[in-house]
């Protein structure tokens, strides 16, 4: 950093001088300039005093987070990150979602044959059955919970958008706050789309989530006024189980 030819010093040199970060040559220049210029000396004095005051702000104690809860959450996050980088299953959840959505359109027999719907549906049904019974077996979901409970109080609790991946949304259960879901910019949970009333999010999701520390919502779609949610929950052994939830009006959710 050098001084200008006009004889004036570059203003930032005052900060460098204050912080004792100048080389000897510039230090001497600033020192001489300050001796000869009362106005700049006044500016320097201001810098010095406010700098001291700013340092006082640091004297306010900040409580260190407790180790165990901090470590527990960190472990969960690392597991989620690692799960997110695992290879996709043979039939991805997105494909399953597509198949299930297709089934709801109830195509004609001819269409089914032409589009290969029947084998696709069979495959999906088998895959879903596996996931469902796996969830039952591992205690993530029990049959008693698999009932439709339409209620306006349904809340999937606090959602925090992860910085790393838009797909990874951690759902926590400690502090219910429906507003946060809207912050994810998902209009589906506003229960209204195109001025039509959509079904409420099903309480079963909340129950499932409550069974574990966290879950990852992969995507939420709507078709024919029905919200379809694909999410993953962490099993006891750390592996992720894909759950697809479609709130049929008169049936249990599809798992």
């Amino acid at each position: 950093m050098t001084t200008k030819n006009t004889g004036k010093i570059e203003p930032e040199l005052l900060s460098g001088f204050l912080d004792q970060e100048l080389d000897p040559q510039n230090k001497q220049k600033v020192q001489t300039y300050l001796e000869q210029n009362p106005d700049t000396r006044e500016q320097y004095k201001e810098l010095q005093l406010f700098s001291q005051q700013l340092r006082e702000l640091n004297s306010i104690p900040v409580q260190t987070p407790e180790m165990e809860p901090f470590w527990k959450e960190l472990n969960s996050r690392i597991n989620l990150e690692e799960a997110g980088t695992q290879p996709e299953p043979a039939v991805s959840s997105t494909e399953l979602l597509k198949i299930i959505t297709e089934t709801r359109k109830q195509p004609t027999t001819t269409q089914k044959i032409i589009s290969g719907f029947v084998p696709a549906f069979t495959g999906a049904a088998v895959a879903l059955a596996v996931v469902y019974f796996f969830a039952l077996a591992t205690g993530i979901l029990d049959k008693n919970q698999a009932t439709v409970n339409q209620t306006t109080d349904s809340k999937v609790n606090q959602v925090r958008n992860r910085n790393t991946s838009p797909k990874n949304i951690l759902v926590k259960t400690k502090q219910p706050d429906h507003k946060n879901l809207k912050n994810v910019s998902n209009p589906l949970l506003d229960n209204k789309l195109n001025n039509k009333t959509l079904p409420q999010p099903d309480l079963n999701i909340e129950k499932i989530i409550n069974k574990d520390d966290s879950c990852v919502i992969e995507r939420m779609d709507t078709e024919d006024d029905v919200i379809t949610t694909v999410f993953k929950v962490k099993d006891k052994d750390g592996s992720m189980i894909t759950v697809i939830w479609i709130p049929f009006k008169d049936a249990s959710p599809t798992i």
Binding site: E12, L13, E21, F50
Partner: peptide, 23 residues
């Protein structure tokens, strides 16, 4: 770093003066 630090300090001082405080 020096330049940004100086500008930040100046802005703080300006804010303080605007609110009626001087050194």
């Amino acid at each position: 770093v020096m330049s940004r630090l100086h500008h930040a300090r100046k802005k703080i001082i300006e804010f303080m003066k605007k609110h009626g405080y001087s050194s």
